[in-house]
Design a protein around this nucleic acid. Structure first.
Lengths: 216, 216
DNA sequence: TACTTCTGATGACGCTTGTCGTCAAATAAC
DNA sequence: GTTATTTGACGACAAGCGTCATCAGAAGTA
């Protein structure tokens, strides 16, 4: 009875790490392994065994933090996007505050495409998360919309009066994100053939075109 | 020896069908089953057994036409896009020939989004084909580029002089396709909440904005 | 030093998969 | 009517999967 009742919350230090530190390190190790494998061989081809081998840990520690590979995928995706979003916002804010100009947009795009020069990140964020499960779909939707809202916030503040209704505004934002992300995707699938500046320029032009067009 | 050497090219009629007719019907049945399953439960969750059950045929006839489920996916994807492309072109051509106007674009978009109101087609074309394999990736790339070139051909003929270089033109086309397809994808994932006209309008505005913007 | 906890290696289980073989019934050809 | 082909139902097989249990050794704790 004394052995069965252990709930392993004892939390001893081991190898110079506290229980919390060990858990955090294991988690991060699996996150790295996930990004590596999801971003190369792909999510559907990645197994728990492969993740453990890549991480140099055993499955017990995988299941301690994640329920399954889909859970890990969600975590990797979320963290990657968080990082990118932070970088993009930093680039925009570093440009100086209001009013928002085309220069802000350009630097934001620059930061965005820079981040996706990491092919593993790019593959996970644009290819691997799609069509996995309703849960991941929901996550994807909300992230795309988040990006769209950021873009619209910037764009609107470049224009004196915004002519579109709410629904059409929402879709326009999503379309813009789609333009940028499709560029990134094709860039990846094309082995980053074009220079980054061309991507930035083409998408910048698209955005400027929109925010200068009269309602009809 | 007489049984082993049979190469089953005899081709008898059976059930009122010639060998070629039977093969064609079986193929089409599996294509339908593929669209149904890939478009609902998804490609990675679809097995040969499920396809056979859905098709009402046994695996022998599956392997006679397709090497594996990936092969079927490629076929379903190709056929779906062929159909849509035909419909879009028909809508544009029905509008009357040169010069290309915004009306042509609008009707093309209308046809495009109409086709993707079939959620199975939409799911296969936008979600399920991504991140499957290098072969499917290649197929996807070439199809996207094909659409992009069509769009650029229309757009260019709306402008007196096209200011962009080759590489930037290519990426701009891909970005436009991305805008449209991301709209379609979100439309699908959102259970077709918005009216189709809003999708057409938002994307039409984006395209017009681009083709009216000065080089800088 | 004695005891407990943590770790990694290994193997086992139940399940699903792709794929193939067998066999009897249906159909066509001679 | 006899023979050959086509079909569907069914089962078998190896392989790979997620998951769990066991066990010996390493590393703390008392």
């Amino acid at each position: 009875m004394n052995k069965i009742e252990k709930n392993s919350q004892s939390g001893r230090t081991y190898g110079g790490e506290s229980a919390a530190e060990r858990l955090a390190r294991q988690r991060q190790t699996f996150m790295d392994a996930g990004l590596e494998l999801f971003g190369t061989v792909g999510y559907r081809a990645t197994t728990v065994r492969m993740l453990c081998k890549e991480a140099g840990l055993i499955d017990r520690y995988f299941y301690k933090t994640f329920t399954d590979t889909e859970d890990l995928l969600a975590a990797v995706y979320t963290e990657s996007l968080d990082q990118i979003q932070t970088q993009v916002l930093a680039a925009i804010n570093a440009t100086g505050s209001e009013p928002i100009t085309a220069k802000h947009i350009e630097l934001g795009l620059e930061a965005f495409f820079s981040a996706f020069e990491n092919s593993r990140v790019a593959r996970v964020c644009w290819l691997e998360v799609l069509g996995v499960s309703p849960r991941i779909d929901t996550l994807y939707i909300s992230r795309i919309q988040e990006f769209a809202e950021l873009l619209l916030r910037l764009g609107k503040s470049m224009m004196s009066n915004w002519p579109l209704g709410e629904e059409e505004t929402r879709i326009t934002g999503i379309a813009l994100v789609g333009a940028i992300s499709q560029s990134a995707m094709q860039w990846l699938l094309d082995d980053y053939r074009s220079p980054r500046a061309t991507l930035v320029s083409a998408n910048g032009r698209l955005i400027r075109g929109l925010f200068n067009t009269p309602s009809h």
